[in-house]
């Protein structure tokens, strides 16, 4: 049985459920007080709802096999090195940045280099720059790498943004997605003060997966679906009716512009219609990257296309699941416990 941990509440909860649903592995959770659930479309998996901040540690200790949570908490909590692997780093939701924020009134500070100088000034006065954060480890490393050696961490949970106003910290490091909360609390960011670009990710316990072939098989199914669903978001399917002498001729026309001629090439199939001039109609379908849509439309029109329809694929599968291949590689490299 594969145990998958999902965020039980907070900002990641509903996007995570929506994402799984889009992947075709929607979670059946009878009510929000229940902390376990099933995935009807995926036998052999059980879902456990956990606090997003705890999930990385749960995967690391092996009490669950897979987990979906923010990359920020993963980078902050994972001390266990090779036993846990991030299987898919970007699930395309929960995007936010871990940033250093300082009082807006510090008009003399616009970069980390400024902050280093301020910290040294404060130290000369017998104070130490205080930073309030939940991300001790990431912040400490970031500060030291930027040459900011003299600071102390103020342990803080809850509303970190008010720490400078309350006077128990000078600066903060916290997550922000739009910056609104920071601005409303009289804080601003630094030009080079982004510690981490975070989003939701999927992680797995390598030891647990190695031990249990069934869990591994279920993981493969999950990775395949997630990857195909994520990849599909980059593509449109475009279908056009094109007049031509033969399917080959139409195919060749479309192939003239390989960039917008589909992943391998166009699919061309005959349309059975009344034809007056000896020409046939062919329905031609290409899958193109979203940013190439208008070029694809132009191109199909240019070769005589009409009646163009555009739709979004639900899944786009490659020849093999890249995430699964990566997982196999990680299992190969990781020492056997």
């Amino acid at each position: 049985m594969l145990r998958l941990a999902l965020p039980s509440k907070g900002e990641l909860e509903s996007p995570a459920l929506a994402f799984l649903k889009a992947c075709g592995i929607g979670v059946n959770r009878p009510n929000s007080r229940q902390y376990t659930a099933e995935i009807p479309g995926l036998r052999g998996a059980t879902v456990l709802f956990q606090r997003a901040a705890d999930i990385a540690a749960k995967v690391a200790e092996g009490s669950v096999d897979l987990g979906i949570t923010g990359l920020d908490t993963v980078k902050e909590t994972l001390h266990f090195g090779s036993r846990v692997d991030v299987l898919i780093e970007d699930l395309d939701f929960g995007g936010c940045d871990l940033v250093v924020a300082i009082p807006e009134t510090w008009i003399d500070v616009s970069s980390m280099a400024d902050l280093v100088e301020v910290a040294e000034e404060m130290r000369a006065q017998g104070m130490e720059l205080r930073v309030a954060t939940k991300y001790n480890r990431l912040v400490r490393r970031f500060f030291l790498e930027k040459g900011l050696n003299f600071f102390s961490m103020v342990a803080s949970t809850g509303a970190i943004e008010v720490a400078p106003t309350m006077g128990f910290a000078d600066v903060i490091a916290d997550l922000t997605s739009s910056g609104t909360t920071l601005r409303e609390n009289g804080l601003k960011t630094l030009s080079d003060g982004t510690i981490l670009n975070s989003q939701a990710c999927l992680l797995g316990n390598l030891d647990a997966l190695r031990r249990d072939p069934d869990a591994m098989a279920t993981t493969k199914a999950i990775l395949e679906r997630m990857e195909a669903c994520l990849r599909a978001r980059d593509y449109f399917t475009v279908t056009a009716n094109i007049r031509g002498e033969s399917a080959e001729a139409v195919g060749m026309f479309v192939m003239n512009e390989p960039d917008v001629a589909g992943m391998q090439g166009p699919t061309v199939s005959k349309v059975y219609s009344r034809h007056e001039d000896g020409m046939e109609w062919y329905a031609t379908t290409v899958v193109v990257r979203k940013d190439k849509l208008l070029r694809a439309v132009e191109h199909l029109r240019g070769v005589g296309g009409s009646g163009l329809t555009v739709s979004s694929p639900n899944y786009v599968f490659g020849a093999a699941s890249e995430a699964y291949q990566r997982l196999l590689g990680a299992l190969d490299r990781a020492p056997v416990a």
């Binding site: 009082p103 807006e104 009134t105 000078d170 009289g186």
Partner: peptide, 22 residues
């Protein structure tokens, strides 16, 4: 500085210090 509609939070630094360094 103080009239910009911002809160007057300066952490533990004084306005004088900020202005001097600026």
């Amino acid at each position: 500085l103080l009239g910009q509609g911002t809160t007057s939070t300066t952490g533990r630094r004084t306005t004088e210090e900020i202005v001097r360094r600026f």
